[in-house]
Amino acid sequence: MSRAPHSLLSLQDVHTHVGAYHILHGVNLEVPAGQLTMLLGRNGAGKTSTLRTIMGLWSASRGEIRFDGQAITRLATPEIAQRCDIAYVPENMGIFGDLTVRENLLLAARRAHSIEQMDTQRLDWLFQLFPALKKFWLYPAGKLSGGQKQMLAIARAMVEPRRLLLIDEPSKGLAPAIVLNLVEALRELKRSGGTTVLLVEQNFMVAKALGDRVAVMDDGRIVHSGAMAALAADEGLQQRLLGLSLAAHQ
């Protein structure tokens, strides 16, 4: 009998206020170690706010966030990123447009002070996943296409091994071919093992293709959590939780 993986990240009754707005209304979420958890939900359900709150970009007004058993609720963003070894890809990708692809990747490599100190094997692995990054190595990131920027954003999160990746809607606004490329890259990351991922996604096909676990949000709360395979097999549940119809799947 296999033991259930322990929760690397755990949110307990987390509330977030932004100005006068009460955004998260008591989020309870467990992210098992070594698995890819999808965070789904309609627009405005609170998915992005949850990631921002985990990263400390918005502070939780109530509740507790724990990483590997340690409370991180009151830590500042840089401490959370460093101490917990988290990589975060925001919805807007957070690319430094005036910096080259090379400089963007160097900044994400916390252990390297210069390009020579970066892990060349890992870089080469990233170039295999995203060949465009090698081609545009010395090109300002701001001049890349939307898909290439998203590839750079994901590559930046993968440039060094991290314990947890938080990725916010990587497929948003991208052509299907680019989305397939990103899905392949994330599959490769899963195959390599060791990394835990919490991935926000609107595209249910992407979620089905990648997710081990799923949590569904609505109105600032988690309204469902379980195995991705169970949700994928239950169209009625999908319809109820996400408003998905069979047509949406096809």
Binding site: M55, L57, A76, T77, P78, A81, Q82, Y88, P90, G94, F96, G97, D98, L99, E103, L106, L107, A108, R110, H113, S114
Partner: peptide
């Protein structure tokens, strides 16, 4: 790298913090 951080911070300071830099 310090200079890169300054240039990156001018563009998007939130992202620089998310990468783990104070």
């Amino acid at each position: 790298k310090l200079g890169l951080l300054i240039r990156a911070g001018v563009q998007d300071r939130e992202m620089v913090e998310s990468l783990g830099y104070r």
